[in-house]
Design a binder for these strands. Structure first.
Lengths: 127, 127
DNA sequence: CTTGACGACGTTCAATTGAACGCTAAAATG
DNA sequence: CATTTTAGCGTTCAATTGAACGTCGTCAAG
């Protein structure tokens, strides 16, 4: 599998919107963007085109309108993005990052419990 | 606090080496890089200069040689980097990322325990 | 049937980033 | 002393990315 060219920041931003909507036109994506982002219609168009060219999105026609949808499993892409980040910033070791994440910002009690459950499951699966 | 311009990927890579060494010359940083990275001496020089210009590193002379050291608390920078990533990729919610991190790659048993301890401490502090 | 809104597409353009050249000066080596 | 090495610094250069134009086609309303 030739790995797709990397996602630029803005590209990921738009891809996530498409993922959330399932499928979307340029205009739909534009409307989902926070107003203060202030991107032009044509700009969104360009980014979606690039995402298609890079192999992340699939495009099809509805009337004369382009409809974009995910071509690669979003979770897969997310996994790659996380992995890359982990390698670059923490030498690929997840633990230090996890430590940072759960101590630094204030997790709610429910989130802590949620975390506990995940941890328990993890132990289960380990046995 | 005037926020510094963002770190490019290669810049972060080199900054981390300087952090690890405490202080370092161009050559030292170059030698710490994995051989296969294949960067030129001049290239490392350029990146360190940029890091200085962006306010991340401090430079001083030792003889005619530049010695670079951290100007901003590494942990602080790391925190910013993580925060930025979190916002961009997970809408700022740490939990999904943590889930991903602890399920996807194979954590060792010790690491799981370590994690458990952190979690316990967290509950303590919460009370 | 003309006007205008909407959209696609090719193109462009500036900023940033990755990577290095080339020149010069100081140090070390023969 | 002459030469090679080692640095610094300014500069350059190509690719990538962020962002948008301008043109052209199409559809819908007057």
């Amino acid at each position: 599998m030739p790995r797709r060219p990397p996602l630029a920041k803005s590209e990921l931003e738009l891809a996530r919107i498409v993922w959330r909507l399932g499928e979307a036109t340029v205009r739909q994506v534009l409307e989902e963007l926070p107003r203060e982002r202030g991107l032009d219609f044509a700009t969104v168009q360009t980014y979606l085109r690039r995402l298609e060219a890079k192999g992340y999105l699939r495009v099809s026609q509805r009337g004369r309108t382009n409809v974009y949808s995910s071509r690669v499993e979003p979770d897969r892409v997310l996994g790659e993005v996380v992995r890359d980040f982990l390698d670059r910033v923490f030498d690929g070791r997840p633990l230090p990052l996890v430590q940072q994440l759960i101590t630094d910002p204030d997790l709610s009690d429910e989130e802590i419990d949620e975390l506990q459950r995940t941890l328990d499951q993890l132990r289960e699966r380990k046995k």
